[in-house]
């Protein structure tokens, strides 16, 4: 078991088939294992959640009932880190390294 502070986070931009339409999202890997898929809520029918990030799928410690959508992608990563027992950390570098398309 790797100590939490050594956990390596990586993001991969993906299109996810949600219901009957595609949504932009990211696969979140920690130490090369998929822990979550976060989706950006772009459709108008999301109302006040529009533009926020939603835990579409969580695996292992991130599984269970979805939390309320996150205002920023980094908030979602902080939530994941907490579930994994990681301390607070700055995910700016992880997000920058992912070279995500402009959502």
């Amino acid at each position: 078991m790797i100590a939490p502070e050594q956990n390596h986070y990586a993001l991969e931009p993906v299109k996810v088939a949600v219901s009957k339409h595609d949504e932009n999202g990211v696969i979140v890997r920690v130490n090369d294992r998929i822990v979550a898929v976060l989706i950006r809520l772009d459709a108008a029918f999301y109302n006040e959640d529009r533009g926020h990030w939603y835990l579409e799928a969580g695996f292992g410690l991130c599984a269970g009932f979805a939390p309320a959508p996150f205002a920023e992608l980094s908030d979602g990563l902080v939530w994941i880190a907490k579930r994994l027992g990681d301390g607070l950390r700055d995910f700016g570098k992880v997000i920058a390294e992912a070279n995500l398309p402009s959502f």
Binding site: V18, S19, K20, A43, F45, Y46, D49, Y54, F65, A68
Partner: peptide, 15 residues
């Protein structure tokens, strides 16, 4: 279900 999933589902039935 979550509110997000409900929004999607409602939209599907409407569409």
């Amino acid at each position: 279900v979550s509110v997000v999933h409900l929004s999607r589902t409602l939209n599907e039935l409407r569409s």
